[in-house]
Amino acid sequence: MDSKTDALYMQDNDAVSANATVLACFPLHELEEDLKPLFKGAPDASFVVVTDRTAFYAQGGGQPADAGQMQMTSSSPDKTAIFTVHGVRKAPSGAILHVGTFEDGPFTKEDAVDQTVDAATRDLHSRIHDAGHIIGLAVHALVDKIGPVEDTKAQHFPAVSYVEFKGTIDGAHKAAIEAQANEIVDRDLPIQVKWWTLEESRARCWCIPEELVLEEGEKARAVDVPGLGAYLCGGTHMKTTGGVGKIEVKKISRSKGSSKISYAMKA
């Protein structure tokens, strides 16, 4: 899969629709063997669609993929193919693979299509993702009480969301972390997407992977809440912390020197 897809959401966080050109369309069983595990469990009738550009977020960084549809543009009245997107992943080549099922399909190469992302799903995933960042910021704001910890990994899927830290966070801090996180929400602070050099990222972000290397002139994408700190992040985000909504810290669990804070969005 040599094609490369322009991920519109990286520059335009509000992109939920786009016009695109089909670069490839084929049954899922024809996908390269090393890429098939990306779509384990997909229906047998699934197809893979690759386009030159996309508004669909590709699962990664702990955030699930967008859902929605692609269909032939109105300038192609002789074709009515509709493709329902069930999964989106990014291949190592930079191609973004949309997997789903067709009604009156499939597409052919060079077809012009309209992409429509399910905005409600995008909004929910963005809120959950930002809630995870806010909990991280809350933990760092409480470092004098909690003690020093280091962000390690996170998952922002509905019903199974958590942020994990290297270090011990006692369960007694659960209420304080939730209160601090919701104070950040109540302050309705801006959530800003930034592009920084490696040096800027190291100075402003709470954690930087040791293996991160940027080529000359390349910048890393980060999400910043001014005054509280930033995280390297390729996900989608709300405009302000107030847009995230109230956060519930469900539990704090500890194992082998790490602490996991499980959370959910309050109704």
Rank of each mutant, 00 (worst) to 15 (best):
D6W: 11
G61L: 09
R254V: 14
G227M: 12
E210N: 10
S46I: 04
F157L: 14
E216Y: 08
V163L: 04
I261N: 02
T51N: 08
F56N: 00
S126E: 00
E211F: 01
G100M: 09
A42Y: 05
L38V: 00
S262W: 03
T84S: 08
F107S: 03
R53W: 10
T51P: 01
V225D: 01
H125G: 03
D114I: 11
V117M: 12
D170R: 03
I82A: 01
D188Y: 08
K256Q: 10
K251D: 00
Q192I: 15
S255P: 00
S258K: 15
I146C: 13
D224F: 14
I96T: 12
D114W: 05
N19Q: 06
A67C: 06
L97T: 03
V85R: 05
G87D: 12
H29I: 12
D170V: 14
T21Y: 01
K246S: 12
R187I: 10
A176G: 02
V139A: 13
K256I: 05
S262Q: 10
T21W: 01
D224I: 10
C25T: 04
R53M: 13
D118Y: 08
G227L: 06
P190D: 02
P64N: 11
L35F: 03
I146W: 09
F39S: 12
D144W: 08
I184P: 00
T241M: 14
S126A: 15
A220G: 08
K109E: 15
L228C: 03
Q11S: 14
S161V: 11
V185K: 06
V244C: 11
G100R: 05
C233F: 01
M72V: 07
G171M: 12
V149K: 03
V143C: 01
Q192D: 03
G62P: 02
K239S: 09
L198I: 15
I146K: 09
H156D: 11
L137Y: 06
E199P: 00
E199I: 04
R202H: 14
R127S: 10
H237P: 04
C205F: 13
V225E: 01
I134W: 12
E183Y: 00
L38P: 00
F157A: 09
D14A: 15
